[in-house]
Computed example of a mutant assay.
Amino acid sequence: MKLLGSLASPYVRKVRIVMAEKKLDYSLVLDNVWAPETTVPQFNPLGKVPCLIMEDGAAMFDSRVIVEYLDTLTPVGKLIPAQSRERAAVKCWEALADGLLDAAVLVRLEKTLRPAEQQSQIWIDRQMDKVHAGLKTMAADLAETPYCAGNQFTLADVATGCALGWLAFRFPEITWRDDYPNLARLFDKVSERPSFKDTVPH
């Protein structure tokens, strides 16, 4: 399998971590979707990464779709529970972490792609409100459990760790470590895993 992506994308990182936790072999093909020579649209009409190219040449895209597929390939390091309620809880955590990222990415694009005089502060504030609401909710839900969705490491922790890692990388001014000790403890714990150490964004 080949994974098209970038080293800075938190969505690509999520897939890479799942690949490592599942002990799956693949090659990472670096591609900048903003570059004129990008090949991503050949495989994903939306022009987004990650994009997984399988052995038969078929393509799969959207990180949530990809990681759910990868979790079925081997029983090693099972990350998504089989039971409906527990499964939904993990997927809901993933949706929250990804949604927080979606909002933060929109802010970054607004600030980096538009001239300052064309930027909408109302738009930026609206997206940042989502980021802070997401952090507050995740911290509250972690109050009673060592991991996001209970007592064991799951995809919820992968997604949350990727979201927090990207915020630390791109938005160091957001003081989530000081504001939410629960999130800091979780992040420090998952960051000790080889899969996280090997995929730090840069």
Rank of each mutant, 00 (worst) to 15 (best):
F196A: 02
T160N: 12
L113C: 01
V65H: 04
G99C: 09
A139E: 03
E192G: 05
M19P: 01
R85N: 05
F187Y: 14
V200Y: 11
T160R: 06
V67R: 11
R87Y: 04
Q119V: 00
I66M: 11
L113W: 12
T39S: 08
F196L: 01
G150S: 03
K91A: 01
T199V: 07
K189W: 00
T175K: 14
G99I: 15
F43S: 14
L46R: 14
Q83W: 00
L28A: 11
E55H: 06
R193Y: 09
A116Q: 12
F153L: 12
Q121P: 02
P172G: 07
S120C: 04
C92K: 15
K189P: 03
K197L: 14
N182M: 06
P10K: 08
E21Q: 05
W34H: 11
T39R: 14
G47S: 02
G165V: 01
Y11K: 02
S63F: 05
L164V: 12
C92Q: 14
F187D: 08
I66E: 02
Q152A: 13
L96D: 06
L101T: 15
Y26I: 04
A149P: 02
H202C: 06
A156S: 14
L52K: 08
R85I: 04
D56F: 05
N151I: 00
A104H: 15
Q83A: 13
L109S: 08
D125H: 13
L109H: 15
P81A: 09
V29D: 08
K130Q: 12
L70W: 10
G77R: 07
L109I: 15
L73A: 04
T154W: 13
W166A: 13
T199Y: 14
R185L: 07
L167R: 14
F153Q: 12
R170N: 08
A82R: 13
K91L: 15
R126V: 00
Y180N: 05
L186Q: 13
L135S: 12
W93S: 09
L70D: 09
T72R: 15
R13I: 05
A184M: 03
R87I: 00
F169Q: 09
Y180R: 04
A140D: 01
L101S: 15
S63G: 05
Y180F: 11
A97R: 05
Q119E: 00
S27K: 14
V29E: 10
G165F: 10
P36W: 13
F153V: 03
L70Y: 11
A184T: 05
R13K: 05
N44K: 10
P75H: 13
